[in-house]
């Protein structure tokens, strides 16, 4: 690539965090990652593979943004809560489709939820190219810029850090309580680790599928709404740089635990931010972010073997013997 490695590493990991603005941006980027990541981690624990969070995020943005455009002239404190509810319902609706198809027709939720992601992206493109295009926007495929009452207030003066970040923290707390203190959280864990035992105990697998997918859809839809009502402020043909997919990595890096997901979300938000800094200062392509994220997950998966197994040194050769967790 023709740039010095140390300089690139500095631009990627350190430079974004040298200013208050950088930290605030980190929060902005971490918000959707954490929100989706925690919801996905619950699904992954139960063995429900919701890969279509990106599509649910898009639908949340469409529904929430639709409300914002509908009440464009209305200046009321109720617009924003209504948008939030609409966004969550939109995401839940999009997640309900794979849930229904899985429960009723046994269709693989990985493939159906992913296919719906492409459909959602095309739907958004259709809307901003057509009926929702800004009438004064010189034919650019963009919606109107949302009015003030439809925009999330910033919580840190002079930055883009907005109210959504608090939602993410609340989400972490909520899911932690859910997983550690409620029956359904316990059922999720049992069904993921021992489906037979769960069945014997009378837990309904179908109920868990519905629960985890709807939860994922709600959180993804919420973060989609947060994106359009926060940092973006309008509907564009593309509203997410792959947050829904990166959240899968966030869930794994966070070891499927709400608190872990919080830190993993910050780490991967840094990878987005670092990618942008490296693009501006060193002219590296943004795709560096994706490569870094993929490598991170590779190494994490490979490291699991060192956690589950113990290395034993035997005279001259090294062999792996089975450890506790396998």
């Amino acid at each position: 690539m023709g740039v010095s490695p140390s300089g690139a590493l500095y631009a990627f990991f350190i430079q974004p965090l040298t200013s208050l603005y950088g930290w605030a941006e980190l929060g902005v980027k971490a918000t959707p990652l954490v929100l989706i990541g925690i919801a996905l981690s619950i699904g992954f624990r139960a063995g429900v593979w919701n890969i279509g969070a990106e599509g649910q995020l898009t639908l949340g943005a469409i529904c929430g943004g639709g409300v914002a455009l509908l009440f464009y002239e209305v200046d009321s404190v109720f617009v924003l809560p209504l948008m939030i509810i609409a966004g969550m319902l939109g995401g839940m609706f999009w997640a309900a489709i794979p849930a229904f198809l899985r429960v009723r027709f046994n269709a693989n939720e990985i493939l159906t939820s992913l296919m719906l992601t492409y459909v959602a992206t095309l739907l958004l493109s259709l809307l901003v190219h057509g009926p929702w295009r800004d009438p004064d926007g010189f034919n650019f495929p963009e919606s109107r810029i949302f009015s003030d009452s439809a925009t999330l207030p910033t919580i840190l003066q002079g930055t883009r850090l907005h109210l959504g970040a608090l939602f993410a923290l609340g989400g972490v707390l909520l899911t932690w309580v859910l997983m550690a203190r409620t029956i359904i959280g316990f059922q999720v864990g049992v069904i993921g680790q021992a489906p037979a035992a769960g069945k014997y105990a009378g837990f309904s697998i179908n109920q868990i599928i519905w629960f985890t997918l709807l939860l994922g859809g709600a959180f993804a839809g919420l973060s989609g709404l947060i994106e359009v009502a926060g940092p973006i402020g309008q509907l564009l043909p593309s509203i997410s740089p792959g947050y829904g997919f990166t959240a899968i990595i966030v869930a794994f890096v966070g070891r499927l635990h709400p608190v872990g997901v919080l830190f993993a979300g910050l780490l991967l938000a840094l990878s987005y931010l670092g990618g942008e800094t490296a693009q501006i200062t060193m002219n590296l392509p943004l795709a560096v972010t994706g490569v870094f994220q993929g490598l991170l997950l590779f190494f994490l998966l490979a490291c699991d073997v060192l956690i589950g197994y113990r290395l034993q040194i035997k005279q001259t050769k090294t062999t792996a013997t089975q450890g506790v967790s396998s």
């Binding site: 990985i110 997919f245 994706g290 994220q293 590779f298 998966l301």
Partner: peptide, 21 residues
């Protein structure tokens, strides 16, 4: 012995990024 689902997803994410790079 990593999870096949997780590894496959990692492969896709990595492949998209690497090919773009």
């Amino acid at each position: 012995q990593a999870s096949q689902v997780a590894s496959g997803l990692a492969l896709t994410i990595f492949g998209i990024g690497l090919s773009a790079l």
